[in-house]
Write a protein that binds this DNA or RNA. Structure first.
Lengths: 257, 257
DNA sequence: CGTGACCTTGACATTTCTCAATAATGGTGG
DNA sequence: CCACCATTATTGAGAAATGTCAAGGTCACG
């Protein structure tokens, strides 16, 4: 699969998909088998915290299923979600800044593999495919970070909300019978607010506004119905960028164009 | 040097310096010699843009001197500085998100080494010290990213400004005769505003306020005088965190406590 | 059923942005 | 060396967005 990636991207019309063809991330399962004997499998439930170190030393975490959030709380300020981690993402203890109240929390039930960093480091030296996997995972995270930062720094509240909904739709949205998309939200309102750098009250107001505009439908707890994905994407300046980033999952993309 | 890091941190009082002892970054010069024959040395002046690709393919950049900014501009929004790169930092083309108007710009005169990514990848496989250098550089950048994100997402304007000034003071501040610190700013007001996710007008107002409060002195263009570093650090919720991150440069630190 | 966590909404306070006018700065060509 | 110009920085007034606080509603769970 990884070896055919070039063919696919070169074959498609080269309408400047971005700076360059993005690295195709290798199939996780095959590559990660190399870790099977070295890693500890952690299973966590929603809300559970994961200690970021291993015997006080540095560890690496590879998300295998579910979703996690890394958040940071500076003194006298609300917490900020600085990264949302999905399967295939790699986290190293030292990604968490010091004196910043960093916490790794499961946003849903999740499985994580944990390895001592020094162990992973030597595996990387011996296993080029694994090294590439980790490098590409970090590159992808850096790119997502950049989008996140641009959204928080420059988008209005509504644009931010539209952005995260588009992202969730691209990741986990499933078409519903009524023609809309159903998003099972791994994150609570509070979590989303902390991710977007918004107040929870403000977030609630914005979602109500989107509902009043007919873009969102009435949603139960932990679930959002997107009635008009195109309109939603139209309100997120990052829609095209996210579509490109998530093109692996390849759905809904033609619509954003 | 890297091998003695444990000794040093263990010896000091272990007053929870953060999540864990941070990886000591290897001495750049010795390690980077491995790149000398493979890399292209780019010299850029302030304001100059660096193309993020190499013959349309992926490249890696290693900053050797000066400072650069990676910025991103989503449609219909102002640009956002998503990373400030200093000597030792590593950038890969794919860190820039697609469809996001990503640009790499020199903030000051700078020297950058550029290598085709595939070349660096094979060098990393062959040279563990280089691999460690790159991994640690990325980890450090991830941590800085997290701080930056928390600042933009949760800090007030004044806190953000204090934060970047503290950071610059730790990086480049030099004590002046009058007892203050002089910061030679590699960034224009506009750049700083874009870094902080603030309007340039608002930034100007905040700096005037800090000047009126006696924390900053009167500054010429491209220069800021910090008269009361402690008061400044007191206004940044991230001061301790930054002090820890920049402890390599080890100045001013005892003061923050 | 009660309890607590989470969400929604209103009224009001505060911050930040926008727009516009003015001043300072640095470079450039006479 | 100076006058001029383009750029960058400062500041004010008013508009808009967001945050704060408080009240009430909904839901899951014991």
């Amino acid at each position: 699969m990884a070896t055919t990636s070039d063919v696919k991207t070169r074959a498609g019309a080269r309408t400047r998909p971005g700076v360059l063809d993005k690295p195709k991330r290798a199939t996780p399962d095959a590559v990660l088998d190399a870790l099977a004997t070295q890693a500890t499998r952690l299973r966590v439930r929603r809300g559970q915290n994961v200690v970021l170190t291993l015997d006080g030393g540095e560890a690496a975490f590879i998300v295998r299923s579910g979703a996690l959030m890394l958040h940071v709380t500076m003194p006298d300020t609300p917490r900020q979600v600085v990264a949302t981690l999905f399967p295939g993402d790699v986290l190293r203890s030292s990604f968490a800044p010091p004196h910043a109240g960093a916490t790794l929390t499961a946003a849903s039930q999740a499985e994580i593999w944990r390895v001592r960093w020094t162990v992973l480091e030597s595996l990387l030296a011996a296993n080029p495919a694994l090294a590439r996997f980790v490098q590409d995972a970090m590159a992808a995270q850096m790119a997502r970070h950049a989008v996140h930062l641009a959204a928080i720094g420059q988008f209005s509240g509504e644009q931010r909300v539209a952005t995260i909904l588009v992202e969730l739709a691209l990741r986990t949205g499933t078409p519903s019978s009524a023609g809309g998309l159903v998003l099972d939200m791994p994150l609570s309102r509070r979590d989303i607010a902390d991710h977007l750098g918004l107040n929870a009250d403000t977030l609630s107001r914005i979602m109500s506004r989107l509902r009043a505009a007919g873009i969102l439908g009435h949603s139960e707890r932990n679930r959002v119905v997107v009635r008009d994905f195109l309109a939603l994407a139209g309100r997120s300046p990052a829609a095209r960028c996210l579509a490109e980033i998530h093109s692996d999952e390849g759905r809904l993309l033609a619509q954003i164009g």
